[in-house]
Design a protein around this nucleic acid. Sequence first.
DNA 1: ATGGAAGAATATG
DNA 2: CATGCATATTCTTCCAT
Length: 914
Amino acid sequence: MMETVGSLSKGKMFLSRMALNDNKAGMEGLNRDKINKIIMDSSKGSRFYENELKKEQQVNQRIEKMLQQKAHITEQQLSKAKAQVEKMTLDLEKGRDLSRVIVHVDMDAFYAAVEMRDCPELKDQPMAVGSMSMLSTSNYHARKFGVRAAMPGFIAKKLCPNLVIVPANFDKYRAVSAEIREIFADYDPNFLPMSLDEAYLDITEHLEQRTVLPEALRTHCLRLHPISGGTDGVEKQGDGLQTPVEVENLSPLLFEESPSSSPCLQDASLGGAGGDVEVFGTSAEEAVREMRFRIEQKTSLTASAGIAPNMMLAKVCSDKNKPNGQYILPSNRQAVMDFIQDLPVRKVSGIGKVTEKMLGALGVTSCTHLGQEMALLFLLFSETSWQQFLHISLGLGPTHIQRDGERKSMSTERTFGEMSELEEQVSLCRELCQDLSQEMQKEALKGKTVTLKLKNVNFEVKTRAWTLPCAIATTEELFAVAKDLLKTEIDNVSPQLLRLRLMGVRVSGFVSIDDKKPLQRSIVGFFQQGRRDSSSQMSPHKPVNENQLEPPDQTRLPACPSLVQASLQQGQPWVPSRGEVEVGRPGQQQLSFFRRVHAQRLLSERLVSPENGQGTSFQTQLDATTDPTDRHSRTKKHAADKMTGSTLEGGSTSLCSDTEPDSLSCPVCFRAVNTTDLTVFNTHIDLCLSGPPTEVKNQPDLMRDPGVWGREEVEKDRVTGGMEDTVGLRLNSCTGDHTESAAGLLLDERSTANISINRVDLNSVCLNTRGVSIPRSPDANAVKGSAQYEPCVQVSSGCPRSLAMLKLESYDHRGPALTCPVCQVTQECDDLSLFNRHVDLCLNQEVLLELGGPRPFDHPATTSQSAAHEEREQLLQKATHKGKSRRRGSSPQRPSKKPKALGTARNTIDRFFR
DNA sequence: ATGGAAGAATATG
DNA sequence: CATGCATATTCTTCCAT
């Protein structure tokens, strides 16, 4: 190679990552310089190119770092490494297994070949499958022009103006794939499909049987019965095989019927054109030839294959005589080593362009070099990389093919023209979640980690993930998490907009079938789990983190705020915790918002109750400082207690219960209702909820209506009251102005505290400061209790009309949490109609409750059958003026054509995230 | 030290 | 004018114990 990719050419950086990758069959002897010039000319200056440049420089830096490291290596280190290498080499050599016969089969130009088969006009011209922006495959004709897979169509067109680009038709490819897999299965029922067009087979057993296989069963007929007109396609040359023909049901016949009755022959004679037969031998080569023959007979497509003692070699071999050829590597050590000798490392699966370049910088291009430099590589690369290199240099690879286990992730992503509109972004996000959810449903999967992927118009990629305590699957759940992730990113660049070109959502952390049950358990099990967890924390023998049957430690993981809301609607166990946003100072490194979550959560748990996990100290504080009526809210629990045990621990400390019921606290007006009759109580709640909506409509006065919200006095009391011991802070604004307060929350200059945004509504923002004490005055740095763990922070709303509400609660019980007076379940939820429906259900199912214990908040669909509910909901919708009671599940989602906000840009953002 | 989680990067077809 | 999608794995960094 004279013009090594990555070297300098005419003083200009030549991008190795952009240049033509011609290590592909059918691309030998091309005018690379010319092709590369065209590629460069089409790319230069584009955002894509700029990003590639950036990435290239990163790689170069990595290489530089590596070379510096190399310079500091001492002889001593090197000889020590050498010893390591020798020892390891010996070990590996000892374990070398040449007994297996592994085959790698690979269809030739698969997608392109299928299209050509089905459209004869394409056969004689250069064509590719894909689009103007990306090609999946090209036929061999097109490859002569440098047109290949993973090349954008518009560049391919420049290389080859006559190129025909055919859109992909995956259903068709899948169908063909199924056909060839049937054949594979005859040779190895445990074959490993790598993609639609590729598979590994272990034919060792088949070969054993084959030696005693009657000749008739190795006899295959050839029917000259071209299915789509044309004779030989561009890719069909050599190997003595004839034109594409079709023989129906060949494989079953071959292996299941007696040879004498082979209809194959009859058919052939019937065909008139004279059916030839071919007898295949018993060797590995013959077996593979037979397999390829059958593939061609069945599909009119050709395949190439490699035969070798392990997968790594078989893969390389299958490429050797592409297309429509095969290569066998004898199963002896010398043959393997000879084969490896000059093999470019890049040919080995797993060595990509970056590794190739890094190795190249050390003078390693072939596998022999690799073997020679193993000691050096030991010092410069990671253990795993080094192991990989060593295996390669010895010609070793997996000898037992194993079907892939369970899938580990599932994702969907979409590329589009620049998208900056929040509304669009959010709705796209939802769409993706919906698609993903549907896919998950097909495989009955539920996952715990949701990852949002964003690529901006400069091709910079970001991923943001959140792991939940329980597995989720529905659109709403996924969206709840994804939109929070998205919102965080939007907030992080605000007031600028995210200019996206791609968005994706991924789910991982699937629970196995065995794990699913516990995760879908009712809230009873959920809480019992929490109890078990915290008790085991205390016990000296700490259990290993979940074996299969042990459900995940749900108390230790953060939950996504919106998810709580969503799961509420889905009637699934909710998780009493939340995520946060770090409000960083300008210039300060924005630490990952979620990374902090876990830490802070643990912290809060420690605060709550390190010794007994019951949160007693907190509870004491709570009782001492909350509104007196509140104290009676945790009443009515005869049933609930029986089921959950009398305490809820760990992350659920807040649900600690007290006893003696004589009144119930209305979660709406916060007043004690002097009754224990739940029906009466329910009526009260209903009244509260359907209370005068008129004033409420006027947003500025939202907080003024005690009849509906009734919180003002209470909260004012709290502001002046238990301030010192405040642990959770909730800040409510009755206008949209809070957007200021959310972002511009006034931290004093040394505060690095994390303010968590609990929920951002149209009308309120709920913030949580974790374990932070609020000084009475800007100067007073009251360090109390939990504050020893966190810096002090001074909070001000920055909005004259906002009302700071300080509420003494344990961490896991802050925010707009409502406790169901019936089942005692507290949940973050400020949608009163939902809450009311829950209460209704609880009441209606009192009997059930007695029998089965508390259940999760139920799905609205199952609960809002009655017209009364509907009415109330409508009322409430008016009352809150937020559309909060809109049921995402059942009502057709309105295309958020709500009036654009009066307020700031922020305001509108918040609206989208409802 | 070790281990988990998140995030970026690498690789494959 | 303009560079995809799905999946897996590895490496690095940060954090907690």
